[in-house]
């Protein structure tokens, strides 16, 4: 079964006919053409598809598109404004928080959710906020330093 769903993706209203069993990650990647949100696992284990749903980090691979009526979705594509990287993107670039880059969109969106709620998080809060995101290059220290730099708290 398909239904018409209207939702806001990266600040723009969209209306699409979506199947009841369509996952938000496939909606974003296939229908909306936003491939920044990555698919890294079988479902809910890696955090690569983390995006913001009404401002809270959530997993696109465990969200049904049909249940997103009226909701606000923000993906990695929404962060840069007028071609300028946002503070987290800039910090991940400068502090080498990115290696192969596959986990980076999920890491940055999880960190973005944290910084909006807590602009100056402690290291423990950063670790907890990123605890659902796996980096298989294992560059976790640089990732945490990047978030600290973005929050203006780098040592």
């Amino acid at each position: 079964m398909k239904r018409i769903v209207s939702l806001t993706v990266n600040g723009r209203r969209r209306e699409d006919a979506v199947a009841d069993d369509l996952l938000l990650i496939d909606y974003l990647r296939e229908l909306a053409g936003l491939t920044g949100t990555k698919r890294g696992c079988d479902g809910g284990e890696c955090g690569a598809c983390t995006m913001l749903l009404d401002g809270e980090p959530a997993l696109a691979c465990l969200t049904l598109a049909a249940r997103c009526e009226g909701r606000q979705i923000e993906t990695i594509e929404s962060l840069a404004a007028n071609g300028r990287l946002n503070r987290l993107q800039q910090a991940f670039h400068e502090k080498l928080g990115t290696q192969c880059g596959y986990c980076t969109p999920g890491m940055i969106m999880a960190a973005e959710g944290l910084l909006r709620r807590e602009p100056h998080p402690s290291e423990a809060e950063i670790r907890e906020a990123l605890s659902g995101n796996l980096c298989r290059c294992t560059g976790y220290v640089k990732i945490i330093e990047s978030v600290q730099a973005a929050s203006g708290d780098a040592s």
């Binding site: 983390t50 997993l59 465990l62 907890e128 605890s131």
Partner: peptide, 9 residues
């Protein structure tokens, strides 16, 4: 429970 992205849902 799980990770932050799960807990929000």
């Amino acid at each position: 429970i799980a990770g932050p992205g799960h807990r929000s849902a």
